[in-house]
């Protein structure tokens, strides 16, 4: 259980622009063990999607990647594309937010699935068709034989997402990287995908890195969760530890802002200020301009991660000791101007 399948150490991703350099990821650390579902949460622009892309060596140019990403012991950073072939779709596979855009509209689902299978295995046509059928069955796509001959536009959003998961899992990867795969879906279909991913993780010992901004999905699906802010992981721990006794002020605020079913007409807490411009990240701890607990030390030094308990780590000079979450409505700052 403790075997590390996906290890990210001090990952940095920069995008040089003409007059400035955007630091999308600034020393992120992440470790996912075999059979574990790790959630990676944060707001738009925090670097979570770039971290995911780096796992497959897919950071687009002119992005510069440094640090280490190892997938089942295979170092990804710094490798040319041809050496990454066994990783992409083989050791690790990825599913995306919008299945309608990720699949090619010109080819049938069957053709796209068998292409992937034949790229990684020396299967004949009939054999790869069998593997494709099996993959579609494993994601409970109704009438898999018919689905093989369908074009993407002939399937619904939920069916497309199942087809994409089938394609990702066809070559039996060790790690599945899921970048907001349920964000574009209706709640009813989202619930189907959550239950399916949980079932696949249990049945195959699949390791999943699940990127989302929806804390409800994290609570319902993940074993552990990493919270990202301004290109760094600021808190990591079991879902229960992080969601029930968050230690980082950012995690607490994030949790307080989510409207929850059953709360009625309550005023919602929000985080004052804005997500920092990553071309000019704040000095010290990147969250200090928006943090109630910030003190002079926060503006000077970026806190290192420290252990709070079993597997619960936080990077904050003034972390909460755990216990109660902030009650909504008690911690509002001034509205952003």
């Amino acid at each position: 259980m403790s075997e590390e399948v996906l290890a990210i150490r001090d990952l940095r991703i920069e995008f040089p622009e003409l007059f400035r350099t955007v630091e999308a990821v600034r020393g992120a650390d992440l470790s996912v063990r075999r059979g574990e579902i790790m959630g990676l949460v944060g707001e738009s622009g925090c670097g979570k999607s770039m971290t995911a892309m780096a796992c497959l060596g897919l950071v687009p140019p002119p992005g510069r990647v440094s640090g280490h990403v190892s997938v089942d012991g295979f170092e990804v950073v710094g490798r040319p594309d041809r050496e990454l072939l066994p990783v992409r779709g083989g050791l690790a596979a990825m599913i995306f937010q919008n299945p309608g855009k990720a699949l090619n509209p010109f080819f049938t689902i069957g053709r796209q699935l068998t292409d992937v299978i034949r790229l990684h295995h020396r299967h004949g046509e009939r054999e790869s068709r069998e593997v494709a059928l099996e993959a579609l069955r494993s994601v409970h796509l109704p009438d898999p034989e018919i689905a093989l001959g369908r074009y993407p536009h002939q399937l619904s959003g939920g069916q497309l997402q199942r087809a994409m998961i089938a394609m990702a899992l066809a070559c039996e990867p060790k790690v599945l990287i899921a970048d907001e795969p349920t964000t574009a879906l209706d709640v009813t279909i989202q619930a189907q995908v959550i239950v399916l991913l949980r079932e696949l993780a249990d049945a195959r010992g699949l390791t999943i890195l699940f990127i989302t901004h929806d804390l409800g999905v994290v609570g319902s699906l993940c074993d552990r969760v990493s919270v990202m802010y301004a290109g760094r992981v600021v808190e990591v721990g079991s879902v229960r530890d992080v969601l029930e006794s968050p230690a980082h002020p950012y995690t607490r605020k994030l949790l307080a802002t989510v409207p929850k079913l059953g709360d009625g007409h309550s005023e919602l807490a929000f985080i004052p200020g804005q997500v920092p411009d990553m071309a000019f990240p704040p000095s010290g701890c990147a969250f200090h301009p928006r943090c109630e607990r910030a003190s002079p030390v926060c503006t000077k030094s970026d806190p290192d991660g420290r252990d709070l308990g079993a597997m619960h780590r936080v990077a904050c000079h003034h972390a909460h000791g755990g216990g109660e979450t902030e009650a909504p409505g008690t911690a509002n700052g001034a509205p952003a101007r």
Partner: peptide
């Protein structure tokens, strides 16, 4: 179908 943030309600 609404996922709960509380893991015990999974």
């Amino acid at each position: 179908s609404v996922p709960s943030i509380d893991p015990s309600q999974r």
